[in-house]
């Protein structure tokens, strides 16, 4: 059986090279060649379409971000998109897998597919080329590109102006002064060539934001595999995949940090800024938890932070 994997990240992206491709090869190994995975030379649709593509069978396996589509489908997935969640992508991803598939019933939100992986990247930072942020007031009026709704609400609460755009547009706009900063990972600094246009990068314990990702397979295709093959694939997916992909993110972050060197001033957020962020964040967390109905979002968040060891109170 040959499974089709549609990949939308650039072919040389660390996640593709160090997680998706090795995993695909291992599928063939653990099933003794009965199941192989073919990665398409180019994606079979736009990035936001990738969840639907696996569900509808356009491809057999896809990966993507839950925040690609702004709709009511992946509400509980937002568990992993808040601040102060963890600085290690492996621990993050494994905690995310366990808690989201456990008490938050991730499978229900991924209906029509078999969930093979859930993961997060390393901590998100706040990069800017204006000034070192020492008090919340330093953020006032700063135009910050944010990846999605939560991060937007968070920086808006501190008086900055959030702007949305696709990741490749960030370079154009940062270098032209259209935006003053961006909430991004370490890895994105070098991946999008931003080093020369960033002066200060503020780290927040556990990250100022994170993004959550899925790796899914068409349900019908999954059911069609033999029980032995399903068990073999399961063994290298889930928590095992979380470890693999988390390590790929960590390595990418380390490589980026080395490449950036001292061209950017990294500094930890001051207690004052952290307090302000926490205040804004807990309001947003409570608002999110409210909308989850029978699921206890706040308990899940507390559990998450216990797992990753980020103290917050």
């Amino acid at each position: 059986e040959e499974l089709i994997l549609s990949s939308w990240l650039p072919p040389r992206h660390p996640i593709v090279v160090n997680a998706i491709e090795p995993w695909a090869e291992e599928v063939a190994e653990v099933t003794e060649g009965r199941v192989t995975v073919r990665i398409m030379a180019r994606p079979l649709g736009t990035p936001p379409a990738h969840f639907d593509m696996a569900r509808d069978g356009v491809a057999d396996i896809t990966y993507g971000l839950h925040s690609f589509t702004e709709d009511d489908r992946f509400e509980r997935a937002k568990l992993g998109q808040f601040s102060f969640l963890g600085d290690d992508a492996v621990t993050n991803s494994q905690a995310y897998w366990d808690i989201y598939t456990g008490q938050l019933d991730a499978s229900a939100e991924h209906a029509g597919t078999r969930l093979l992986g859930l993961f997060m990247h390393g901590p998100g930072l706040l990069h800017n080329n204006q000034r070192k942020i020492e008090t919340p007031a330093d953020m006032a009026g700063m135009k910050i590109r944010v990846p999605g709704g939560y991060a937007g609400d968070l920086v808006a609460a501190l008086g900055a102006a959030p702007l949305f755009m696709s990741s490749p547009e960030v370079y154009e706009r940062l270098s032209r002064g259209v935006i003053d900063g961006v909430a991004f990972t370490y890895e994105a600094m070098t991946a999008f060539n931003l080093t020369d246009h960033i002066k200060y990068s503020m780290t927040v314990p556990g990250g100022i934001y994170n993004t959550t990702w899925f790796l899914v397979m068409n349900e019908g295709k999954w059911e069609g595999l033999s029980e032995a093959d399903r068990a073999a694939i399961d063994a290298i997916s889930g928590p095992a995949f979380a470890e693999r992909v988390g390590k790929a993110w960590n390595d990418a972050d380390i490589a980026a940090k080395e490449e950036v060197g001292d061209k950017v001033e990294f500094h930890e957020a001051s207690p004052e800024v952290v307090t302000a962020l926490r205040e804004a964040a807990s309001a947003l967390e409570a608002q999110w938890a409210e909308g989850l109905g029978e699921y206890d979002g706040l308990a899940a968040l507390a559990e998450f932070r216990k797992r990753t060891g980020v103290g917050i109170e």
Partner: peptide, 13 residues
């Protein structure tokens, strides 16, 4: 499907 899932744009909703 979009009607059912409440699909909206990211910043202006």
């Amino acid at each position: 499907a979009q009607l059912h899932e409440g699909t909206r744009s990211a910043s202006l909703a």
